[in-house]
């Protein structure tokens, strides 16, 4: 381990420790903001885990988030909390494995279309089940979980998602995904099980999204399908990850933090035009920053290196 790696490790530990004491220092409003920031940081990072290397644009975030939230609504009072989270993760992984196996063999466009409607599909199935089988629509969540608890759980999950991302990037799976991103045909001819790699990553990413939904659920005391499956989250997560740059593990977070603050500000100040402004932000990113903040940083670095090399050459 080199000195710089040790330094990065030490700084990260200090940052985690610093973030962990935040709830005891701030008021309820800022704690809520902190929770939202963590929520989108995890969602965007998890999105980037799958969509960054495979270049599949997934609009399914809400579907998994909602599955997590609804699992808590149904089971929250019947099982101990760690078990509820485990069940949510299992349901999320099974759902994503089914979706992945049936759609990831299709082309990228078909995948976008399918995920575009997935949240709506899952929502409709949940509504149908609640109306016809369990005969309740809308459930109350009374759990002994405070805002602080939610914050700490999300912080822990954020640490895990970064650690997992870091590990994947260094693993054989990560290498396989880089090759798939470059040329899927070559990947197959190198002996890579392309479908398995994609589905595995899709499932890992979806489990994080499901857990975020589950951890966030106690924030609402009342939950119904239209709250749990709010399509806007999928769109926001895509914008955030793209602004940051999805081809690096830490890229999406760089987009999630400023945009969460911006959206919070907009929805408080201009509640009626927030959709419109979100669209404009989206277009600015697509046209002006096609490879995100990370791409911009890398370009600047390359430019500096290039001009330095030129300087020494002449």
């Amino acid at each position: 381990m080199s000195v710089s790696q040790l330094l990065i490790g030490a700084v990260s530990l200090a940052a985690i420790a610093g973030l962990a004491v935040v709830p005891s220092l701030v008021d309820a409003y800022h704690l809520a903001l902190g929770i939202t920031l963590l929520q989108f940081t995890i969602l965007a990072t998890a999105w980037g885990l799958f969509s960054g290397p495979t270049r599949y644009v997934s609009l399914a975030t809400t579907a998994f988030f909602g599955v997590g939230a609804y699992t808590v609504a149904v089971l929250g009072e019947q099982l101990p909390w760690p078990l509820v989270l485990t069940v949510a993760a299992v349901i999320g992984s099974v759902t994503s494995a089914i979706v992945g196996l049936s759609t990831l063999r299709l082309s990228g466009v078909h995948f976008v279309i399918f995920t575009f409607g997935l949240a709506e599909l899952v929502k409709q199935l949940v509504v149908w089940f609640e109306v016809n089988k369990s005969r309740v629509l809308g459930r109350y969540i009374f759990l002994d979980i405070t805002q602080q608890d939610i914050y700490w759980q999300l912080l822990a999950l954020a640490v895990i998602v970064f650690a997992v991302g870091w590990l994947i990037a260094r693993s054989r799976l990560g290498f396989a995904l880089r090759i798939i991103g470059e040329d899927e045909t070559v990947a197959r001819h190198c002996g890579i099980n392309v479908t398995f790699a994609k589905v595995a990553l899709f499932v890992i990413s979806a489990v994080f999204m499901t857990l975020v939904g589950a951890i966030m659920a106690p924030r609402w005391t009342y939950i119904e399908p239209s709250i749990a499956f709010n399509a806007t989250i999928s769109f926001e997560v895509v914008i955030m990850a793209l602004l940051g740059g999805a081809h690096r593990v830490w890229g999406p977070a760089l987009g999630a933090i400023p945009l969460t603050l911006l959206f919070e500000f907009l929805s408080a100040r201009f509640p009626n035009t927030s959709t419109l402004i979100m669209g404009v932000v989206f277009l600015l990113i697509v046209y002006a920053l096609p490879s995100g903040v990370v791409g911009l940083i890398e370009k600047i670095r390359q430019f500096r290196r290039g001009s330095a090399a030129q300087g020494s050459g002449t």
Binding site: F175, A176, I179, E182, D183, V186, A187, C190, G191, I192
Partner: peptide, 24 residues
């Protein structure tokens, strides 16, 4: 090999070869 040559342009030569080694 392919009729129209296919190498992984975003990677180094070493990683191109490693792609053939790693999954076998």
């Amino acid at each position: 090999t392919f009729q129209l040559v296919r190498v992984l342009d975003g990677m180094t030569c070493g990683d191109n070869v490693r792609a053939g080694l790693a999954f076998n």
